[in-house]
Each structure stands twice: as structure tokens, then as C-alpha cells.
Design a protein around this nucleic acid. Structure first.
Length: 772
DNA sequence: TTAATCCAGATTTTT
DNA sequence: TCTGGATTAA
């Protein structure tokens, strides 16, 4: 989110000097200053890409503090990600010094809601020690509920139900409200059992003393609605409310903000409708579009001066986004004249594309650019593979953003489940995860019996186990290991008081035989144990177990790979808020980007969101943006003909420089037309339109489409020119990727076998072998 | 309880 | 084409 120019030293010097507040305004343009200064009443700041959004927010906080308008804890400032929150805190600290530490209400929607909910948990039937479950637990819980009701989980996948559940929660709908929506697709789930399942799910969560992410908001919303005294308290407390990335709020978040800002309307929302790319996750662009209606008398301030990109890049992006209908409209401008035009290149296939990008990278590197100045941004993660392989071959260091995350690793989740169970005995989901990990001879059948018993008795599974062990209802084969498990468990709980929590985990893992199990497993190569050690290290930073668990459930972003000097390969979504001098945007083909599925499922709305994604991609670039597409692409192992994305045509030609090595085939064109037909869309350019003056597609390959022969061409790349893999001999260490460090174990012609130390995975790379 | 086999599904992802 | 989840057999 380093969206703007760094703060001049003169301002940093003005730390904690309330009387120097005017210094904050130095270097701000008039609109930015206006946005900072308008502290009375509701304000919407429409901040285009690269216009200094974060700077406005942080300066605004600094200004409020410096003017003595509020104490640090009287400012509510919400973001979406922990990263954004962290950055906001850091940058505010730079402006106002240590007093920024007191900003206790600066955080993500979820962390702030969790804070509030812990304080009033009993009002919604929870204990304040409640656990926060993730979507894996959510799905498993749903599955249990459905199986207990004898719903065919094959016909009605719990995953799908979980999806509906999320959608309802995003919209702030409670089970009773859903029950009335008979037309709703989710409500009709499994023969209209949607609402029932929802209700039972909520009830089960209450019994488990747990809640999911959506509940954090919904429960607080409920408390605020039903308890005017509490609401009153927060109204008095939050004198100023600031919201980052307002275009990404969903309805629940909207309602939550609404109620919190009702009486006190010093609300400042910052966002950009053109960068709303999370619609599929419940974000409502409408929230930002109707802000003025929601808050009558609101001021709308547009930030249109872009400090990031050159003229050509900005104009290409603006031209593109102009094709969208649902937008408030902004015209970005910059002082940075000229620069390189956006280059669009057509290539034969994915391998050629990766090769082209890699060559460009090496060329730019020779011209003195750092690898970390460059990024490859793709639509979907499967597109990353080709680049990884190529980069590996040429020894270009790279980092993949969004690989398997630390907390999603099985061993970490197991350890957390143990801790959760120790923290709260009611946590059946944690119990289920670890009763038989490592294997204790407690099989599925036994677990099912326990769950059933617990449900019948209306108690938690641990309680049920305690009871059952006293009786003779269980066969000795199941009973003995359970008794052993209980004994261990009780010892751990007792140890919780006397032992540091990281040492406790070590004890748990030793006693339970988890370490032994991992050591016995040769495939992991000891890295799992390293991960666990790493986790214990991290635990030391927390007061107690409870604090740590809160952290992991909400702040799952430990251990980010920080590729110091590496090219970044990332999805477009994950690149939001970042910027790079050089950006490569491969895979701009109809059906890939814009994604066919997105258009099929959401029609025009989906297409417009894809277009915003393209806009986000282009505007990440400071100096160089290079778009590419291919004529042939392998999708799910099948070769398909592609045609360039309509987005390519939508960039104004005068800001684009087109080159093509191969052009594209008539076959591709045709197959795309029929694809459009089937989906009921009108392509932006039809055959007759191809002749339109200045259209990119004309210049592209210099081929008259109508004269190309009809029969499909074989999708073979003319001649693969083998390149020697430079200096990659057996034993060479290859840098970090999402697979971790690795060593070359075998080279043979074009084939390269790499053994990755961290995952234990062996990967064969043969990017030069021709694919028929 | 574990290993072998079959089969649908295969964007984006934070909390 | 590849993969993980579920079913089936041993």
C-alpha cells in the first residue's frame, strides 16, 4: 500500500508537536488537504489508483490527534487486512510519534468486532473465551449436521452449503430472515432445508462456544441493535470513524458501520469504485455508489492526481475502465509525461509467453533494474506454473505470493487444534481433528459414536467421553486409548497454569507421540517439525495461550516470504495495493481474462469486475506495463485456440504499442464466437468490426481474418529451440519458491529434476520438450 | 484400519 | 491431464 510518495523529513520531524499540525499538509495537493481537513460530518474520498489514499487516511488521523479533537482510542479506523492495518499504524506513528500506540481501535473489521464481542459475549450465548473457527471447520461441522439429518452429502455438497452460509452472513441475514426467502437458491438447498441447516449450525456453534468470521460481525451487530446502552457507549467512544477500501465492504460490514456511526457522523470512507474486485466474496460496489444517499449532506472528494504511473499507462488504464457502466467516474491525471507505451504482444503458446517474459526480465535486469522491481500478475494461479518453470530454468529468482500458507499446513493446524481443545474443552471440532492424530486406534466408527452420544446428551464431546469411559458401553479396544487420551489431556490442562504456553505445546507434541509420528514420516524430511518449532518461537511473543489463539484465528499472516531480490509472481487479486516499476500481465485472452466463468455466472456484472481487475493490474505499474496473450493455450491438459481479450481492444490505441510473433488463428476466432453465443454475450468486436479504423486487432498480426482458412491448425509451436540450462548442475541450489529451497538432483538434456527441501517434493522441469 | 481404485472437477481469497 | 476425496476391498 505504498501508494504515495514517502513523507518528507520535515514532517517526520514534527512528531508529537500538536502545534505544528500544519506541517502535515505540506506536500499534499489541495484535494488531499481538503480530505484531511474535513473532519466534520460524513466524507467520501474517492481515491483513484495511486492518488495517495493511505497518506490521506494517516494524515487525517494525525490531524485529528494534533488538533486535540479526539484521544487515540476514540478513533475507530477499520481496514480489511492485517497488512493494511499494520501499515496504517506504522505510517501514523511516523507522523505523530509514540502516541499512535494508543490507537487501540485501528484494525480489521474482524479484529475490532472480535474485541467487542469478547466483552459482551454472554449477550449472544457465548463465553468470552469463544474460539473462532475457519472455513475448514465450518465445512466439517456442516457435514456432520447434514449427515445426522441423512442428507446426501454427495448430491448436496457441504462446501456449497458453506458458500450459501457465507453469502447470507455477508448480507447480514439471520436464519429467520433466510426462512422467508423461499426463492433464494441457498434456501432451496437440499429440498428447502437451507434455513433449518443454518439455524442448526448456529446452535451447534453456540454449544461449541465458537463462532465463524461472519458471526464476529453479526453477533456484534445484534448486540448493538438490541442493547441501546451498549450502542450508546460506543457512540460516545468513537468520535471519529475512518474506513479504508470502502468499495470492498459487504452488507454486514455496511450495517455494522451504519449503526456505529448513526449518532456520531464523523465518518470518513476512502475507496475507489474502480478497484472493487471482491464482489464474489460479498463486497457490494453499491455501498460506495450510494454513499451520498445513505449519508445526506456527505461531502465527496475526488483524488485524481496520480503519483504512480506514467501518462501512457494511466491513459491506457483509464480508457479501459471507461467501458464500465456502474461507476462514479474519475479522470486520473499525472505529470509524468511520456514513458513507454503499454506493450501488447501476441505469442504462440504459454511456453513462448513465459519465455518472452523471462527474456524481458533479463534484459531489464541488465539495464540495471532489480528483480524486485518486476512483477508478473496473472488472473488465476494455474497460470503461474509456466513462469515458475521458466524462471527456474534461467535461474531468475522469484517469489510466488499466495502459496500454501503457514497456518494451512496440516501440522500447524493439528498443533492449533490441540491448543484449542486445551483452551476450551467444548471445542468438538478441534477434538475431532486430533483424537486420532497420531493414530491411537480410535477409528471413525468410535468417533461417530462419541459425536452421536454428545449430541444426544446435549454436551460437548469431551464431556461425553468422560461419561462413557465410566460405563461399559464402549468395547475395550476403543475405551483403552480414550482413557489414555483423557489422562494426557487432563495433565495438559493442569500444566497450562504452571507452564509457559510454548513449552506446553512442546510437551503436548512429545506426550501425544506427534513428534514420533512426524519423525517416522520420511516424506516430510523433518520440515514439519521445523515448522512446529517455528510456531513455538512465534508463540513466545504472546502473553498467554488465549492471546496467541486469538492471533492465529484472526491474523493468519505470519511468515510471509520476503523475496528480497526476486521477481514477484502473484495473482492480480493479491497484487492490489502494491506497485512495481515493471509489470507483466500475461494471459489476456477471452475466457481466461476476462474469465469465462465469471461472465457466465454473473453476466455483465462479472465482466465489469474482470475489467476492474484489468484496471488494477495496469495501474500497479509505475513505468512499464506489458500485456501478452497467446494463440494456443493448454487448459486442463487440452489445447485450445485463444483470441485476444476484449480488454486489449479497449485500451486506446495511441497508448499501446503492439507487436506479434504469431498472430492468432481463425480457428481460435471461431471457437470464441461460439463460446460467446452459448453464453449469450455480444463480443465487443465482431468480424465486420475488425475493419474499424485504428482497432488494435487490425494492426496486430496484419492478417485479414476473413481470408484465413477455416480448418483448425495443429497447435504446435514451430520449432522449440533448446537452450542450454546455464550452469544448472547436480547439487546447485535453487532459490526460494512456494516449494521452498531446493537442490538440483538430476539433469538430462532439457530435463531438470529439482528436489525441494521444504516440501520434500520432487519436481521435473522440462520446459523445452515439445508438447504435441 | 489401511491401501487400492474410481471419479468428478478444475478462479479470484481475507478474516 | 491431474488431483484429492470418497468408496471399496483386504
Amino acid at each position: 500500500m505504498s501508494e504515495d510518495v514517502s513523507i518528507p523529513i520535515s514532517q517526520r520531524a514534527s512528531v508529537n508537536g500538536a502545534s505544528f499540525s500544519s506541517d502535515f499538509f505540506k506536500g499534499l495537493n489541495p484535494e488531499q488537504a481538503d480530505a484531511v481537513r474535513s473532519t466534520e460530518g460524513p466524507v467520501l474520498v474517492l481515491a483513484g489508483a495511486g492518488t495517495g489514499k493511505t497518506r490521506v487516511l494517516t494524515t487525517r488521523i494525525a490531524h485529528i490527534l494534533a488538533q486535540g479533537l479526539a484521544k487515540p482510542w476514540e478513533i475507530l479506523c477499520v481496514t480489511f487486512t492485517n497488512k493494511a492495518a499494520r501499515e496504517m499504524r506504522e505510517r501514523t506513528t511516523r507522523l505523530v510519534g509514540p502516541s499512535a500506540e494508543g490507537l487501540s481501535n485501528l484494525g480489521t473489521f474482524h479484529s475490532i468486532a472480535a474485541q467487542m464481542l469478547r466483552r459482551h459475549a454472554e449477550l449472544v450465548g457465548l463465553k468470552s473465551s469463544f474460539n473462532i473457527i475457519d472455513d475448514d471447520d465450518q465445512t466439517r461441522l456442516l457435514k456432520q449436521i447434514m449427515e445426522a439429518r441423512r442428507i446426501d452429502t454427495k448430491r448436496f455438497p457441504p462446501k456449497l452449503m458453506a458458500h450459501f452460509l457465507d453469502q447470507w452472513k455477508n448480507k447480514g441475514l439471520t436464519p429467520d430472515k433466510v426462512a422467508k426467502m423461499t426463492a433464494d437458491e441457498g434456501a432451496q438447498f437440499a429440498f428447502n432445508k437451507g434455513p433449518e441447516l443454518y439455524a442448526e449450525y448456529q446452535e451447534r456453534l453456540r454449544v461449541l462456544n465458537a463462532c465463524d468470521f461472519g458471526d464476529l460481525l453479526l453477533h456484534t451487530l445484534k448486540i448493538l441493535t438490541e442493547h441501546p446502552d451498549i450502542l450508546e457507549h460506543y457512540h460516545r467512544r468513537f468520535k471519529y470513524v475512518l474506513v479504508d477500501e470502502y468499495q470492498d465492504t459487504n452488507i454486514a460490514q455496511y450495517l455494522w458501520l451504519r449503526i456505529l456511526t448513526n449518532a456520531n457522523r464523523n465518518l470518513c470512507c476512502v475507496g475507489d469504485d474502480d478497484q472493487s474486485i471482491y464482489g464474489w466474496r460479498g463486497a457490494e460496489v453499491d455501498n460506495i455508489l450510494k454513499f451520498e444517499r445513505d449519508y445526506p449532506g456527505a461531502r465527496v472528494i475526488r483524488l485524481e492526481r496520480n503519483y504512480r504511473s506514467t501518462q501512457h499507462i494511466l491513459s491506457a488504464a483509464s480508457g479501459l475502465i471507461r467501458a464500465n457502466s456502474a461507476r462514479l467516474g474519475k479522470t486520473l491525471f499525472t505529470d509524468q509525461e511520456g514513458g513507454e507505451k503499454v506493450r501488447v504482444q501476441g505469442l504462440w503458446d504459454g511456453a513462448a509467453e513465459a519465455q518472452g517474459v523471462a527474456e524481458d526480465i533479463e534484459r531489464l535486469k541488465k539495464q540495471g533494474r532489480a528483480y524486485s522491481d518486476m512483477a508478473v500478475l496473472v488472473r488465476a494461479s494455474f497460470q503461474m506454473r509456466a513462469f515458475e518453470e521458466r524462471f527456474l530454468m534461467l535461474q531468475i529468482p522469484y517469489v510466488v505470493v499466495g502459496g500454501p500458507r503457514f497456518f494451512e499446513r496440516a501440522e500447524i493446524r493439528d498443533a492449533i487444534a490441540y491448543l484449542r481443545l486445551i483452551q476450551s474443552e467444548d471445542d468438538d471440532l478441534a477434538f475431532e481433528r486430533i483424537v486420532n492424530v497420531p493414530k491411537r486406534g480410535i477409528g471413525d466408527a468410535t468417533v461417530q459414536k462419541l459425536l452421536m452420544q454428545a449430541r444426544l446428551a446435549g454436551q460437548s464431546v469431551m464431556a461425553a467421553v468422560r461419561d462413557l469411559v465410566q460405563t461399559d458401553e464402549l468395547p475395550a479396544r476403543a475405551k483403552t486409548p480414550l482413557v489414555g487420551f483423557l489422562r494426557d489431556y487432563d495433565r495438559w490442562v493442569a500444566a497450562l497454569k504452571s507452564t509457559a504456553h510454548d513449552a506446553l505445546l512442546d510437551m503436548v507434541l512429545t506426550d501425544s507421540g506427534y513428534y514420533d509420528m512426524q519423525r517416522a514420516d520420511k516424506t516430510s524430511g523433518g520440515t514439519r517439525i521445523d515448522n512446529l518449532k517455528e510456531m513455538m518461537n512465534a508463540m513466545q511473543d504472546f502473553e498467554n495461550l488465549e492471546a496467541y489463539l486469538e492471533h492465529v484465528s484472526l491474523v493468519m499472516d505470519l511468515e510471509r516470504d520476503n523475496g528480497e531480490n526476486s521477481v514477484r509472481i502473484s495473482t492480480l487479486h493479491a497484487a492490489k495495493g502494491l506497485e512495481f516499476p515493471v509489470v507483466f500481465l500475461p494471459g489476456w485472452e477471452e475466457g481466461v481474462f476476462p474469465s469465462q466463468r465469471s461472465m457466465d455466472e454473473n453476466g455483465l456484472k462479472g465482466l465489469e469486475e474482470e475489467r476492474r481487475l484489468a484496471y488494477v493490474g495496469l495501474t500497479r505499474a509505475r513505468e512499464i506495463a506489458r500485456v501478452s496473450f497467446v494463440a494456443n493455450r493448454q487448459v486442463f491438459g487440452r489445447w485450445t485456440s485463444q483470441i485476444p481479450s476484449r480488454f486489449i481492444d479497449e485500451m486506446p490505441i495511441e497508448h499501446v504499442e503492439a507487436t506479434s510473433q504469431t498472430g492468432y488463428t481463425q480457428a481460435g476466432w471461431q471457437s470464441q464466437e461460439s463460446r460467446w453465443d452459448r453464453a449469450g454475450y455480444q463480443p465487443n468486436h465482431t468480424k465486420s468490426e475488425t475493419k474499424t479504423e485504428g482497432r488494435f486487432s487490425d494492426r496486430l498480426s496484419g492478417v485479414d481474418m476473413s481470408r484465413l482458412e477455416k480448418k483448425p491448425q495443429p497447435h504446435r509451436q514451430p520449432a522449440a529451440k533448446p537452450q542450454p540450462s546455464k550452469g544448472l548442475s547436480v547439487g546447485t541450489r535453487v532459490f526460494h519458491s512456494k516449494f521452498g529451497y531446493g537442490h538440483v538432483v538430476e539433469t538430462e538434456g532439457n530435463k531438470l529434476v529439482v528436489n525441494f527441501d521444504i516440501s520434500g517434493e520432487k519436481k521435473v522441469i522440462d520446459s523445452f520438450v515439445e508438447k504435441a
